[in-house]
Design a protein around this nucleic acid. Sequence first.
DNA 1: CACGTAGATGACGTTCACGTAATGCAAACG
DNA 2: CGTTTGCATTACGTGAACGTCATCTACGTG
Lengths: 133, 133
Amino acid sequence: MTEDLMTIREMCETYEVTPRTLRFYEAKELLFPIREGQKRLFTKRDRARLKLILRGKRFGFSLEEIRQLLDLYHVGDQQMTQMTRTIEIARERLGDMEARREELTQAIDDLKEQLRWGEKVIASMKNEKKAAE
Amino acid sequence: MTEDLMTIREMCETYEVTPRTLRFYEAKELLFPIREGQKRLFTKRDRARLKLILRGKRFGFSLEEIRQLLDLYHVGDQQMTQMTRTIEIARERLGDMEARREELTQAIDDLKEQLRWGEKVIASMKNEKKAAE
DNA sequence: CACGTAGATGACGTTCACGTAATGCAAACG
DNA sequence: CGTTTGCATTACGTGAACGTCATCTACGTG
């Protein structure tokens, strides 16, 4: 079953990306599939990273930014000295993301208001129509 | 004072964009500055739209997607028949955005957990160091 | 009136994130 | 054993979103 390793095709079907995309991400050092002969085999770690990559893209991060963010997610590999710095960066990122969410909330509220307004207009138009009958 | 009209330079300084960007947005029909002779003058409406454009970009929307979203914000100009459809689209958009916020919240929580973990490791390393002294 | 300044209009260049062949190799199949 | 299938590499192509450069125009100022 899920032997923890997936071929490129399986990856593509699972995550709805093209082979080109996966190879491209490897070239950019976002993924590190192992090799069986020539063939790529994607590990659990690669899949976790890919999910984060796709998520990052949905929020408008560039691949380079995503690469840096990904490094924050395997903090365990770091040395003590780098660790402190890494955490510092992570905190900044966290701040960014929370600000982003605030903004998104604002956008949602704006749109909701527009919707209410639109519905109100429709309602009043219906009344006019009714009155005209 | 704010005569409701701004030159391209004022716009650039206010919103930290280049003239090229503003002209580009006009070419793409995202902005509609009025003309005084040759010169562009940006209205209150243009500024509102620009804010939404920049916000949209921060969330990874393409300019084309943003253009469509912008149309949702001047619902008032629409006809009744189109109105219903517009509101329908707006509702879908709203759903997207709320899902997006959910995802962002998840990402924030993930990162927070990583942070706590990192801090724990650092703390335990300090203890080790202390014990070794 | 010469001149600097602000803005306009092409038009070509650039970066990012892949798409799209063309070609090769190696195992699997009929 | 030839051929299809799956994946690999190399390399050129592409659309989006501007950057950059050259040239032109209109206006205020000394």
